[in-house]
Design a protein around this nucleic acid. Structure first.
Lengths: 111, 111
DNA sequence: CTGTATCCTGATAGATACTG
DNA sequence: CAGTATCTATCAGGATACAG
């Protein structure tokens, strides 16, 4: 249960790594667990698994298990997750436009 | 120091009441402290003061002290704060479009 | 009316180790 | 490779009381 529309949207992208996960999946939509962990770098194994689970619960991503050994799992954006991409772009753009570059460790989105 | 553009933007609007404060100021740009507290309702006196201070620090709002007794203070959006409004609209719109209405206690933004 | 200080709680994130 | 469990640290939010 969400307090309102703002709250509903924010709950989905609030987690420290969620936007970065969604952004990574938008760039390249067949990521494996380790692949994501390497990309996001200082993220912890446990935290990544946790945030992926929440994104799954919220219906923003899907999990594809290849049933191999060693395990092979890929994550993808759902249509709902894809619909969030323009919003992520807007968040990125605002940051680029209104926050001094030297206050950011690095830039992620292009343009 | 922010990790990246997403992080920079999110820091500013992450607080539980920040979006609602900005949204309230956008609707009516001469709000007093008590006025805001009544509008946001279950927000605590202390928390409201805290989030206002952070918005001030981030340059999104200004504080106008009328130096009266009893105290009279009004808050306004800065140009930077105003530039955030379209993003808030986008957040609102996405919530309305992608989250079931019966999962929200109430709707705030129009349309 | 506005603002601050103290104390408490739950949520969030991280370090680490273990499982199949 | 992917996932889970335990433990710990930190922070955000809130209840309450007090001050100018």
């Amino acid at each position: 249960m969400y307090a309102n529309e703002f709250d509903a949207t924010m709950q989905m992208i609030r987690g420290k790594w969620k936007i970065l996960i969604l952004y990574a999946l938008d760039e390249d939509d067949h990521r494996r667990f380790n692949d994501l962990q390497r990309t996001l770098k200082p993220v912890t194994h446990k935290i990544l698994a946790e945030q992926l689970q929440q994104l799954l619960d919220d219906g923003l991503i899907t999990r594809q298990d290849f049933d191999e050994n060693p395990p092979h799992v890929e994550y993808h954006l759902t249509p709902m997750g894809q619909s969030l991409v323009p919003l992520l772009d807007a968040i990125c753009d605002w940051g680029v436009a209104h926050v001094a570059p030297d206050k950011m460790v690095k830039l992620l989105c292009d343009e």
